[in-house]
Amino acid sequence: MKNKMTLRKKRENIAGFFFSLPCIIGFIMFAAIPMMVSLGLSFTDYNVINHSTFVGLDNYSKLFNGDDPYFYKSLKVTIYYVALSVPTSIIFSFSIAMLLNRDIKGKGIFRTLFYLPSIVPTVAISAIWLWVLNPDFGLANSILKSIGLSPSRWLTSEATVIPTLVFINLWTTGSTMVIFLAGMQDVPRQLIEAVEIDGGGFRTKLFHVIVPMMTPTIFYNVVMGFISGFQVFAQSYIMTSGGPNNSSLFYVFYLYREAFQFMRMGSACSIAWVLFIIIMIFTAILFKLQNKWVYYGGE
């Protein structure tokens, strides 16, 4: 009997290993090794063609002492974008989810309508908004003019390019809205009813029941928003090429340019690692702060 058990255990070990083998190889090939290689390359001047030489911390010091003005510029642009896009998209999609969470007819259709833009390919999103926001012939400025407002330069002026990209991002937050809506189904009915019996209004219901109960979902969306916001790339690559005057030079765009246009792979790896560390610090702070405001029911 005992022998049989150990035999089964052995077979389980072998089976488990072989079932998981694809992802083990995948992890080693596409996460573990590249991560180490990237760290190693960040201390070299590798440029694909020549042999690389070890340059110590040169790549990093070049970034931080301002030799490359684009580093701080792209960092500023990206932080500005994240600071605007995370709160706006959370509040916007939460509000829509609140609206759709009511007892309304055609809920499914509206949910589909709000979700639809988020599946559109970024390249197409970019083309559509380039046209809608065209300063001379675009729909947006025609609407502004027809209601008596002055037209905007949208993506073509330094001052408005980031707010415009934040606005376009709002259009694609349908998936966040769906996640909120799903979370709202788990808010206990009796808590809301209790507030109603006590004569509490909408505000009490929202800020004392729904928002507190939803904090885990809000937290999840904030973390995801931060991580993806820091890695925005395609929008600015296609719509603005980082311009005007580098005012939409996002961090990953800057990295892409270093790596694939200038072929400075060593330097690009150091840029990637700085990003990695920034994201880690931000997520660590978010996780640290979470016990101040995130409520996990029953724990």
Binding site: G16, F17, F27, A31, V37, S38, Q231, L255, M265, A272
Partner: peptide, 25 residues
Amino acid sequence: WVGRNIVFACIMGSMMLPFAVTLIP
């Protein structure tokens, strides 16, 4: 099986890794 938890932890950890880091290597 023996390595299950370690493998799962590694895979979850790799979700946090920005694509920018692994792209170049």
